[in-house]
C-alpha cells in the first residue's frame, strides 16, 4: 500500500458503496441508515489508516492500528462511542465480507499460473495446515474458557 491518499479514499468509497448494496439486499433497512452507517465505518477506516502512517506508529501493521482505532471509538464512555456503535449496527458483518471476497476472487486468476507449477502434494498439506490452525485454537479456547468459568 502506497501513500496515495486519493486512491485509498477511492477504494474505501467503492467498498462502502458495495457494502450498502450487499447490506440492503440481505438485511434491508432504510437507505439513509445504510448510508450513514457505511460512511461512519469508512471514515474510521481512513482515520485508522492515517494514524497507522504516523512516524513511530508505522512500525506495527496497519491492520493493528485500524482495528485499535475502531476498538477505542466503541468503548463505552469514550465521547461519541454510543452514537457510533448505534449507527454502525445497521451495517452487518456478513454483507461487508461479500464485496471484499468478490475482489479477492477477481484477483485469483493471476495465481493460476503459479498454481499449475506446484506439485499436487501442496494441496493436502495446505488443507491440513489451515484446519490445524482453526481446530487447535478452538480446542485451546474451549479448554481455557472452561478454566476461566465463562461457560
Amino acid at each position: 500500500m502506497k501513500d496515495n491518499w486519493s486512491d485509498i479514499i477511492f477504494i474505501i468509497v467503492i467498498t462502502c458503496v458495495l457494502v450498502i448494496v450487499a447490506n440492503l439486499l440481505s438485511y434491508g433497512g432504510k437507505l439513509s441508515d445504510n448510508l450513514l452507517g457505511s460512511a461512519i465505518i469508512g471514515a474510521i477506516t481512513l482515520l485508522g489508516l492515517f494514524i497507522a502512517r504516523l512516524p513511530l506508529l508505522n512500525k506495527l501493521p496497519v491492520v493493528f492500528w485500524v482495528s485499535l482505532t475502531a476498538v477505542i471509538l466503541s468503548i463505552p464512555g469514550v465521547p461519541g462511542s454510543e452514537w457510533i456503535v448505534e449507527q454502525t449496527k445497521h451495517i452487518n458483518f456478513l454483507p461487508i465480507t461479500t464485496p471484499i471476497l468478490a475482489y479477492a476472487g477477481l484477483a485469483l486468476g493471476k495465481e493460476i499460473d503459479g498454481f499449475k507449477k506446484l506439485s499436487w502434494r501442496i494441496i493436502p498439506v495446505c488443507l491440513a495446515v489451515a484446519a490445524g490452525s482453526f481446530i487447535c485454537a478452538t480446542l485451546m479456547a474451549e479448554l481455557m474458557l472452561h478454566v476461566e468459568g465463562i461457560f
Binding site: T15, P76, L108
Partner: peptide
Amino acid sequence: MARAGQFMPIAMLVLMVKIGLGIGP
C-alpha cells in the same frame, strides 16, 4: 487482476473496523 489484488487489503480494513467496533462494547 493486479488492481483487484490492490483493492483487497484496503477493503479488508473496512471489515476490520466493523469487527473492531464490536470489541469496545
